[in-house]
Design a protein around this nucleic acid. Structure first.
Lengths: 243, 243
DNA sequence: ATTATAATACTTGTATACAAGTAGACTTGA
DNA sequence: TCAAGTCTACTTGTATACAAGTATTATAAT
């Protein structure tokens, strides 16, 4: 019934992915972008038909998305929860929470190697900007934060990140794409924030850490507002996926 | 091959559960109790045979346990990670992290209803002790903390809890069972800690909150050491599940 | 004996089939 | 008109089949 549009999630990132993963990533993007409206009830069979796969990969995807709290698995159908401003704020809370924790740990650790790696990623981000590659920029941005989190080698903090990451990634992707078109000047500021981040880790200056952390997150907050606007735009222009 | 032993997870808690859930809960208990050794490679087919179900519920279970970080899904077989002292400490970290956050939120909220509910649970815990029902006591203990966390109505903090809870529950179950046999006097102290917890929430006294929080967690820490000892005991006495 | 090749016994991911259960529409009887 | 029942079209969870891929072992050639 619903005609298959081009994918929202970068297809080249899914080259080696299973059908289950492909559905997971794409479905998540469609939900977070607002292309699939909040409140929609998803049917396994219908999704299987839409994505031209069997129910097995669909079920896998739904379970994953439910654990990320963007859908709710009910006795009959999966209801799309989506992200309202409340959820944006909550994601922000959790990011602050875990990155603060990570920073505390980093303060008492050798971090030369990490700083090196982060600098490399920052260079990559600059190149991505130069070539106006929003997706690549997003990838490096997410990688930047993941690299910091992984550095403390804490499997249960990583567990939290693993659950938050996909949603974050989708948000950042959508936000960066629209910013590349409309607010290109933002990127100098984003780069500065990340540079500050690195310096904070390098000097183990806790004050700078906290400051750069919040500065970065305030920026994220802005991203989120952007996204919200572009979602609204999308919602008006895009034909519904479900009926 | 491996003969099916009695279940470690309370069977009556699984009365309405699917085969997939049953496998998930039981497998988790066997891993956390040390009955399935760390490093063991689990085979979907073998597990399916052992639990007398098909691969579908087994895959579901393995995915869940992987997201909880107690197994690692690799290209060939799932490797049991289990919980070393490092992981115990990490779980402790995350509990402190989220419960501190929750407490901060609670301080600026109406909490009469919550206090009521917690008091009820505490009464239940007392009854469970009176009738020496370790499983029931564990259930109420977990419920106590979950009730506090749910009170702030924060879906991404709840997401963290959802991921941590099953492991916590297993740990508490195992710990309480051994304590009922060996360290019965502990329970007065546990009850006192919980009472303090409630008072902290009731009076919105942040100092008391922090104190009772840590006191409670220090107790958990002790539980964990207990568990460690009983695991070691188990490991010696119990025939391996895999070969 | 050692290396290359082939056979085997696994593995994962996906499709498909089916049983059991549930919601909503459609009678039917009062 | 409404209550009770029945039918139909869904739903979920599980079993099973199969293709494609990957380790491991066996076999053959040097």
């Amino acid at each position: 019934m619903a005609e298959q549009k081009e994918f929202l999630y970068p297809v080249k990132w899914l080259s080696k992915a299973s059908a289950g993963d492909r559905v997971t990533y794409e479905l998540r993007m469609r939900i977070i972008s607002g292309m699939i409206e909040s409140g929609t009830v998803l049917s396994e069979n219908k999704l299987a038909a839409d994505f031209a796969v069997s129910r097995s990969p669909i079920r896998e995807a739904l379970k994953t998305l439910a654990s990320e709290k963007i859908i709710r698995l009910e006795r009959m159908g999966a209801t799309v929860v989506g992200l309202t401003e409340k959820e944006y704020a909550e994601i922000y809370d959790v990011r602050i929470l875990i990155e603060t924790f990570v920073f505390e740990r980093l303060a008492s650790m050798e971090s030369t190697e990490l700083v090196m790696e982060l600098s490399k990623i920052l260079e990559m981000m600059k190149i991505a900007i130069k070539y106006q590659d929003a997706d690549e920029f997003s990838y490096q941005d997410v990688l930047f934060h993941e690299t910091i989190i992984r550095a403390i080698n804490h499997s249960y903090i990583l567990m939290i990140w693993d659950n938050l990451k996909p949603v974050m990634e989708s948000l950042i992707l959508l936000s960066m794409r629209s910013r590349f078109k409309e607010k290109y000047e933002d990127f100098t500021r984003i780069l500065n924030n990340h540079q500050l981040y690195i310096e904070a880790i390098e000097t183990k200056n806790r004050d700078l850490m906290v400051r750069s952390l919040h500065q970065n997150f305030d920026d994220v907050q802005e991203k989120v507002e952007d996204l919200w606007r572009s979602q609204m735009r999308l919602l008006k222009g895009v034909e519904q996926q479900n009926d």
